[in-house]
């Protein structure tokens, strides 16, 4: 049974999620991956305005394929989150509460998650067409020069995700394989 999450969401609203929970996420999600993260961090360091409000935000690590006429978005599955590890703690410090991607995170990210009450959700890697089906609208809001890495504001409905790291720091990438092996 999946839990429903509406975004933007506060840390308080996310505190009961547990690693391994299946969730259906709906609301506003911002896309950002490598180059966009680098620029967001530069904005913060220079005291400049970030393209979207980080407070209680959900960030999806995705670089979609171009949409055809009549399509909302192209194929839109998650990219490997580990490459964002060097940037994420600062974003959480500035209010980001949900990260969506795939794969393990490092110790610094886990620590920031525990300190701020954020959560890390995993989307299914490779399921780009399936996830595109959950996107109701998509608008590029910044850094169009980055091509597929530009920042978009997405409205999503019932995006199927798995809680990978909960606000207490429990990590399904460590727990899941052990659970299976225990039988």
């Amino acid at each position: 049974m999946s839990k429903e999450i509406k975004v933007p969401a506060t840390a308080e609203e996310l505190k009961d999620l547990k690693a391994g929970d299946m969730v259906l996420l709906s609301g506003i999600v911002y896309t950002a991956r490598d180059q966009a993260h680098k620029r967001i961090v530069e904005c913060i360091e220079k005291g400049e305005k970030v393209p979207f409000n980080l407070e209680n935000s959900a960030i999806y690590y995705v670089g979609p394929t171009p949409e055809k006429e009549g399509q909302v978005i192209g194929s839109a599955g998650p990219t490997t989150s580990g490459r964002m590890d060097m940037f994420s703690p600062l974003l959480m410090e500035k209010g980001n509460t949900i990260m969506i991607g795939k794969g393990k995170r490092n110790a610094a990210v886990k620590k920031a998650i525990q300190n701020t009450g954020a959560v890390y959700l995993s989307a299914i890697g490779g399921a780009g067409a399936y996830l595109a089906d959950c996107v109701l609208s998509s608008t590029v809001i910044a850094w169009e020069d980055l091509g597929c890495e530009a920042v978009r504001e997405l409205t999503v409905k019932n995006m199927p995700l798995i809680v990978a790291i909960d606000s207490q720091g429990n990590d399904i990438y460590e727990i899941g394989p052990k659970e299976y092996l225990k039988g």
């Binding site: 995705v62 670089g63 979609p64 394929t65 055809k68 399509q71 192209g74 194929s75 839109a76 599955g77 990219t79 890697g125 490779g126 399921a127 780009g128 067409a129 595109a132 597929c148």
Partner: peptide, 9 residues
Amino acid sequence: KCMPICQDT
């Protein structure tokens, strides 16, 4: 939907 299976083409 004639859509790429994965966004990383």
